[in-house]
Design a protein around this nucleic acid. Structure first.
Lengths: 125, 125
DNA sequence: TTTACATAGATAGCTCGGCTATATATAGAT
DNA sequence: ATCTATATATAGCCGAGCTATCTATGTAAA
């Protein structure tokens, strides 16, 4: 498939403030390695968010440095992969940031929603 | 009240990709001057988004340079104010970007929503 | 078998927007 | 007079996502 160097459909600015959240929640579901995160997010977003490797790997290193995730190398499956799992601090941060993001999204929606074609709020059940 | 130099509650990164949209939609409702936009957004967000002047004014200049808004000085009301109104191109961009933002927010919600305390989607009616 | 592609990870350096800090000016209240 | 809120502006900092580039291997088609 080759997701490398594919420019994302969505502006890079949209990712700021929410990309770390998406990556963190993906890892929280179950341990992941970089490439699997890349594919999972592309899948969930219907190929709208296709992370370049130059975005993803530095981000993972940052999250690890912040102790929100931890890593271990695994090569028993043939391929050498660097697996990431979420830490206790990561789970705590994830919940806080998820609520934070939702509050912010609601605020944006209050102003912007009336100019959207489909008037359904993306963060209501 | 004095909103200047008040650090915003929400991370600055969240604003990237959506702040221009909020400002544009505020001006689209009715013509505004800088300070009134600052207060309107603070109001709608319940003081969660308090834009520093150093953020707002350069942004307005950018939007004007992109021909999405236009300005005129008005001082008949005593105070000298620079009013902004949205252009035809601005309306078009606003609609497109509003839909774009909603799609993105729904994508984030799909991943992150399960970790939010209140499970209501912020972009559903 | 060698060519191609998907898989898998890494980093130097650029870009650009929100922020801090600072500056200017005036109306109205104390 | 002094203070506060109103009103606008810009130089320069900072940091995250991106481009470009590099390395390496499993698998399958040519």
């Amino acid at each position: 498939m080759g997701l490398d160097n594919v420019a994302p459909t969505f502006q890079r600015d949209l990712l700021r403030g929410s990309l770390d959240l998406m990556v963190l929640s993906t890892i929280a579901e179950e341990p992941q390695y970089g490439y699997s995160i890349q594919k999972r997010i592309a899948d969930v977003s219907h190929e709208q968010v296709t992370l370049p490797a130059g975005t993803l790997y530095p981000l993972l290193h940052r999250l690890e440095e912040e102790k929100l995730i931890r890593s271990y190398w695994e090569d028993s499956t043939g391929r050498k992969r660097k697996w990431y799992e979420i830490t206790a601090a990561g789970k705590k941060t994830l919940t806080a940031r998820a609520n934070h993001w939702q509050e912010y999204a609601e605020c944006v929606w209050r102003l912007v929603g009336q100019f959207s074609v489909k008037r359904t709020n993306p963060t209501s059940a």
